[in-house]
Design a protein around this nucleic acid. Structure first.
Lengths: 248, 248
DNA sequence: CGGGTAGTTGATGGTCATCAAGGGGGGTGG
DNA sequence: CCACCCCCCTTGATGACCATCAACTACCCG
């Protein structure tokens, strides 16, 4: 329910040097991996690196969709608002993710930094020209969009048909899965970058229900709460069954 | 809550004749419009036309995603199921829509014909080769996916944060918008192809709540219900405000 | 120490689900 | 042609889950 603050952004680098993309540690896991070695300087010449502080909104729903973003560091929440302040977080983006896919002339969502964030910004028109020359990039974007679509459908099932317990269980399973996929070695506890409020607005619940549900899952021995933002999954299978809607 | 029935499909035409695509009245509004005149025979050679009867499921969640589909006639509901039968309809597809976007090896959703349906089926691998030769097709698909993503985000807001009244109002507004976009002249009432059960599973509610909410909107003078599947919007602005979450 | 933010827990209430009964239309078969 | 059935829809009664309101704790940072 926070107010949306228009943010002035820190522009770090109007990157003319090819190094900006070459040395990017997020490139291999992002759509930019579709462009290789010698063509990279073209991409770099279009990119603008920006830093966004925690809590700052850098995409506003309804604004002209002039830019694409590639997230190279930090976590971002994407959300939509109703006039009275009700908020639905449609997803969290992480290092390597691509933001701003929208056909229409304006953004369909807002984006706010959860922690310290670094993004690579491309002008829409410029990137469109690059895409014309590199079909591989377009193919990659189609894959990205398809994956997000699958995730969105899963989230619709969650929001429309799952109970509070099932939603929280699903959320925790998804957090763990994300770590196991792109993470290096498995930490012994999940680090939740987002607040209870964020989780609530993501799962279509309230802060209190999130809190109570965490407590209940802890009392049932399914999870351990080391700190508010540190959750360890104790009964992996039990939580998975709950998330998938098997338990009664 | 219906059970999923594996369906034998009627294969109409292993279309070798180029005419199948050339004469297709859905081509202009579908992704196939990205392919023009002389290349159309290649598309046609890959296509298989199928008829699907109302209520038949022709894509099953979890099955190997071997095919893409292009809907040339009728209405299809896409949905996901939980083990105990809870169902979430993630969307309805109409003439010209493209089905089966999925990166993974298996479908993330099921698809069932609402009424008599005709689809054009392409093998995944074959279409991938066509896409390599026609980047315009891929571009078109990216647009399709982006649009669906925007719709999915809107639906997440609806499912996570809107009241029953707001959901039904949103649904009606969306129905009308779809007609005004691709429809010819405006009929004086919306024709709902789907049942109350379908609407309920689409909006994350129950049949009874849908019915009650329709009745209430009628008593408030916002809509008129000519028949169960014939709804006329009386107070367009009022319904729009309700849908967008303005009313108290 | 004080203030602010985030989280937890309790009491109460509302919205919508569930359970139950009845009405209406379309199809089939006697 | 009518009876019957089945499905869809509607309406009412009750109840559960989660939201809301409220109080309290913990923690961070000044």
């Amino acid at each position: 329910m926070e107010s949306v603050v228009r943010t002035r952004l820190i522009v770090l680098d109007q990157a003319q040097a090819p190094g900006v993309c070459q040395s990017c540690d997020a490139r291999s896991i992002s759509v930019c991996s579709a462009i290789d070695g010698k063509d990279l300087h073209r991409l770099a010449s279009l990119a603008t690196v920006q830093q966004v502080g925690a809590g700052k909104t850098f995409i506003n729903e309804g604004d002209p969709a002039d830019h694409f973003y590639n997230l190279t560091q930090g976590t971002v929440k994407l959300f939509k608002l109703l006039p009275d302040g009700r908020r639905q977080i449609t997803g969290f983006s992480h290092r390597g993710d691509f933001l701003g896919l929208a056909v229409s002339h304006s953004y369909a969502f807002s984006a706010e930094a959860v922690d310290q964030v670094r993004v690579c910004r491309f002008s829409r028109s410029a990137l469109r020209r690059v895409m014309d020359d590199f079909p591989a990039l377009e193919k990659r974007l189609l894959d990205v969009a398809s994956n997000e679509l699958v995730a969105a459908q899963e989230q619709m099932l969650l929001l429309g048909r799952k109970t509070a317990r099932e939603r929280v269980a699903s959320f925790l399973m998804a957090q763990e899965k994300r770590l196991s996929l792109c993470g290096h070695e498995m930490p012994d506890a999940l680090e939740l970058a987002m607040t209870r409020g964020d989780i609530a607005d993501y799962l279509g619940l309230t802060i209190e229900t999130i809190s109570r549900t965490f407590t209940r899952l802890r009392n049932e021995g399914l999870i351990a709460i080391l700190a508010a933002d540190q959750v360890r999954i104790l009964d992996h299978d039990g939580l998975a069954e709950l998330a998938d809607g098997f338990s009664e």
